[in-house]
Design a binder for these strands. Structure first.
Lengths: 248, 248
DNA sequence: GTTCGCGCTTGATCTGGGTCAAGGATGGCC
DNA sequence: GGCCATCCTTGACCCAGATCAAGCGCGAAC
């Protein structure tokens, strides 16, 4: 799943997650303007802001490694994280001018970017891409709407459990081999970032993490290393109706 | 704005909001299978469910008149409205199997539907449609993410003000002629529906409506008829940084 | 080693909004 | 007209989570 090609798997030429022939500068650079003008890589340090809300965003792209978050902020400083970008996730709004939210590097981050104008041209010429983007955007919309239920109706404990199960499930590499339903991973978020994602304070996050640990729903080594002995139990705690606990 | 064509304004043949030639059964029915097999109208009474979450959804479509809401429900009955469909809004997930949430008619509702299979075929053949859908979906995604800020970080009073300003702004026909910043409309939602949209209880909605009335932010005649004497003031109450109070 | 800083935990207290409960208004129907 | 149902309002009380505050653990810099 990690770094899975996001637009078309039919063309594989390396570490760029956007592997459509039409946008593969490495393979058919003549199709495009000068290579670097269209496709390029960019690195960010943890904490750096990729784009500010409202600023013009002249590129689209996807995460190669690291984690970025999409956050909205009110003037008085209240902030809400509205999305989490893991490797292979796409950011960008073809046909839209500015960014609608801040994009911030949560960890060190490498992105693979395309300048927007040529990308849009390619999109017009390659219906497949628009369709793939539509699918991806529909998935994001579903995820956003599911998150609205979390924000609007779940208790603090359920919110934490929901976040943990999402992180666990989005990284399939984390299954603990041989033990059904057990997962191990390092939290990529500080307590504060978790709070911003969940609409809570960091103190409440901390307390609920402790409570889940006390009740054996999770095991904690240090502050970040998490073991989930029973994913089914966690999903129950999350108030999740889907019993997605069935593992390969 | 009302009933504005949602896919392509270049072809106008009546009351269907999807006015693309390729899907206009009335004008070029030969292009398609039997007319009724592809495009049809459907009416629902207030309270009726259009589709249940998880059920197969074999159509896409858009609202002709009335209001529908998208809601997610937990087993224990907690519900969260995750979207509001006004006339001309599109529902449907081309390329996706089942519905991800309940679609419920909030008022009496008329929808213009297309069976999904042929619609998808048309989409493949008509790049313009996929691109228009992508734009619309990106807009919905933006709206959903803005709503996440409301749900996660705003107070009850700010939530109510946000909802009122959204309803006011989405229906441009509601400007009170000649009076700058003044708007009048009938709330299309019960207090309970408002609560479900805002992640509150109906009692809190009622109390905050009374408070906003007491403070002169809104005027109420009966329970539903709302006058907003000063949209700027309302946006301020909503904690909205955009001073969208500039009126035509 | 010591000190600093940051991320985290935990405790004590406060409060916004939830919960429970009792009516009030409106409108359809007999 | 009277009756009933539905939607709404208001009050009294409670509690989950926010706020304020103190201190811990651990790695980095010296």
């Amino acid at each position: 799943m990690l770094n899975e090609p996001i637009l078309n798997s039919s063309h594989d030429c390396g570490d760029c997650p956007i592997r459509h022939r039409a946008v593969c500068a490495r393979c058919e650079p003549d199709e495009l303007e000068t290579l670097e003008e269209v496709k390029y890589y960019r690195s960010f340090e943890a904490g750096q802001t990729v784009v500010w809300s409202g600023d013009p965003m002249d590129f689209v792209g996807s995460v190669v490694s690291g984690i970025a978050s999409l956050t909205q902020t009110m003037e008085d400083g209240r902030t809400q994280m509205v999305g989490l970008l893991l490797p292979s996730d796409f950011v960008g709004r073809p046909g839209r001018e500015g960014a609608a939210y801040d994009v911030v590097a949560t960890t060190d981050l490498v992105m693979c970017c395309f300048r927007k104008k040529p990308f849009e041209r390619i999109m017009l010429e390659t219906p497949h891409i628009a369709q793939r983007l539509l699918e991806m955007t529909l998935d994001e919309l579903d995820a956003a709407r599911e998150w609205m239920l979390v924000l609007g109706r779940k208790t603090a404990r359920e919110k934490i459990a929901s976040l943990l199960s999402i992180i666990a499930r989005r990284d399939a590499s984390l299954k603990l081999a041989g033990v059904r339903g057990t997962m191990v991973f390092d939290l990529p978020l500080t307590r504060e970032a978790m709070a911003d994602y969940l609409g809570l304070t960091l103190e409440t996050v901390s307390r609920q993490m402790s409570a889940l640990k006390r009740d054996g729903v999770i095991l904690l080594e240090g502050k970040r290393h998490v073991t989930i002995p029973d994913l089914g139990r966690l999903l129950e705690e999350a108030g999740d109706d889907s019993d997605g606990g069935v593992m390969a």
